[in-house]
Design a protein around this nucleic acid. Structure first.
Length: 506
RNA sequence: GCCGCGUUGGUCAAGGGGUUAAGACGCCUCCCUUUCACGGAGGAAUCACGGGUUCGAAUCCCGUACGUGGUACCA
């Protein structure tokens, strides 16, 4: 009988939620839901110096927008709380002390200056970043080098100290990564990582192991950047709780930018978002644009993220969240990192806009229009407009360009586009056309097109040569859906009005 | 430097000993449409390199190169 699947995501509230982070959440979520398990979200606010106000709330907003709400979290509650690292502070010390007692960790009293000095003194061309490891620990100020009495004195005096893991000499630590298979590390090459900081807060290394144990996590998925510190976590599991209890690991490939690791700067540089939603850094007031505000549908966003590094083997690319839950498997996650391609991302959004129902598009489109100062009074008209233009919108924001002319009479016309072929005959045509429209019984696309073509034939002008001028009269430029459909939605009086108005200028 | 991980068209990728090496994005051509899209039909473009193993290697092994992550009292 296997345990219920429980996976977790543990962001630190340090700022915006970037693509890699959202994808990690996504894979956690999909895996949990695929197995009918729980998706636990805890906050890694272990380091007060890096905690950014508003960032936690921001994370929840992003998850909500993406439709990836956790089953347990600081705001959703759950049976394994508290879910904030800072609120669990007292838990960690005992485990660290236990390791010290068992000789698997030790107190270190080195000051930051002493550490700097050590790193500076030992730095050579062959060893550009010396580690606090078995080669130097016996030269430092710690409970391995001091006498028991000295240590007790320091502790009694309340001397600042950390607890570091004592990496064993020349042992092989192995574990099986669900995506990558067996991975081995030689412990001699791993440094004595700090487990408990001088301020009493745990580092990620201690916290992740203790919390995963206490919260009964069965599967731990995280970015590949954690792979190097995996041996520390494995050892901690072995020392503290036993390897049998340890969750299964999977290290997810990185999402890369055009030049290496995807960074916030790449977004600014290449003009695409890297965060799920807008993030304003409270310190600098700097805004980083999000996919939501850029005009992405959340369904498209998680879809494109899901298939950036995973596929179901069939060639299918468009998946609903339900399909993803059903088909997702870690074994089919790609091992290598993937470069993010914004063009493809836009394609996904376009596909999603095309396949979305008008009723689902209405609210986001309305928001786009309202933001641009357009008042949408007629809901029915809005629905017709969306249906008419959605195939040509890649981003939700495109709905503005594609439909604003339905709400605003043009005040400028692309005169250059028609001027070369404009003449009195055409002007006369439109004057006649307008009076015909006025006396028309009924008003629909087919009827308008008929009247237009009949009159063109009568006047001996090719209808094609008249369509562009009509379009420009109605919308102002060479864009928009088929011109007679525009006229139909505009209605008789507005159509006639626009033709007259344009005729004065042409 | 050291350690880990990786490498199939420009990008995402399928394929895991025998394939004409799928498909998608992007690009190009044509059709549809005398706006632009959508849609349809085509096209150019790929197994990092060098050694093995094998009758046979994109697929397995070793090396090299390159990329990437880590090397913090950051996560």
């Amino acid at each position: 009988m296997s345990r219920k699947v429980r996976v977790r995501f543990a962001p630190s509230p340090t700022g915006g939620l970037h693509l890699g982070g959202v994808r990690t959440v996504l894979y956690n979520y999909l895996f949990a839901k695929h197995h009918g398990g729980d998706f636990v979200l805890r906050i890694e606010d272990t380091d007060q110096t890096r905690f950014v106000p508003g960032a936690e709330e921001y994370i929840f907003n992003c998850l909500k927008w993406c439709g990836l709400e956790p089953d347990e979290s600081p705001i959703h509650g759950g049976n394994y709380g508290p879910y904030r690292q800072s609120e669990r502070k007292e838990l960690y010390r005992q485990y660290a002390e236990q390791l010290v007692k068992n000789g698997q960790a030790y107190y270190a009293f080195d000051t930051p200056e002493e550490l700097d000095k050590m790193r500076h003194d030992l730095k050579t061309n062959e060893n550009t970043s010396p580690q606090y490891d078995h080669t130097v620990r016996m030269k430092m100020k710690n409970s391995l080098t001091l006498t028991q009495g000295e240590v007790n004195d320091l502790l009694a005096k309340g001397a600042k100290h950390v607890i570091r893991i004592k990496m064993p000499l020349n042992e092989t630590v192995s574990f099986t990564d669900i995506i990558r298979g067996e991975i081995n590390f030689n412990t001699s090459l791993v440094d004595d990582k700090v487990l408990l900081k001088a301020d009493g807060m745990p580092t990620y290394h201690l916290a992740v192991v203790v919390d995963d144990y206490l919260m009964k996590i069965t599967h731990a998925f995280r970015g590949e950047e954690w792979l190097s510190s995996a041996p520390v976590h494995i050892l901690l599991w072995k020392y503290l709780f036993g390897l049998d209890e340890m969750p299964k690991w999977a290290h997810l490939p990185l999402i890369l930018g055009p030049n290496g690791k995807l960074s916030k700067r790449d977004g600014a540089k290449y003009g695409f978002p890297v965060f799920a939603m807008n993030w304003i850094d409270p310190k600098t007031n700097e805004l980083t644009e999000g996919f939501a505000e850029k005009g992405f549908l959340p369904e498209a966003f998680i879809n494109l993220l899901a298939v950036l590094g995973w596929n179901d083997g069939t060639g299918q690319e468009i998946f609903t969240k339900e399909e993803l839950i059903e088909k997702f498997s870690l074994e089919r996650v790609h091992i290598a990192g993937a470069k993010f391609d914004f063009e493809k991302a836009k394609w996904f959004n376009h596909e999603w806009i095309k396949k979305s129902e008008v009723s689902d598009l209405k609210s986001p489109v309305k928001n786009v229009l309202i933001k641009k100062g357009i008042v949408v009074a007629d809901e029915e008209l809005l629905e017709k407009i969306i249906l008419l233009v959605k195939d040509r919108c890649t981003l939700l924001t495109d709905f503005y360009e594609q439909s604003s002319f339905f709400f605003k009479t043009p005040t400028q016309w692309d005169v250059d586009a028609i001027k070369p072929k404009w003449n009195e005959g055409k002007k006369l045509f439109f004057e006649t056309f307008n009076s015909k429209l006025l006396s028309l019984e009924g008003w629909d696309t087919a009827l308008l097109e008929n009247v237009f073509k009949e009159l063109a034939t009568e006047k001996n002008i090719k209808p094609g040569e008249l369509q562009l001028p009509l379009r420009i009269m109605l919308v102002g430029g060479k864009f928009g859906p088929p011109v007679f459909q525009i006229a139909e939605l505009l209605g008789k009086s507005e159509t006639v009005f626009r033709i007259n108005k344009a005729l004065e200028v042409f």
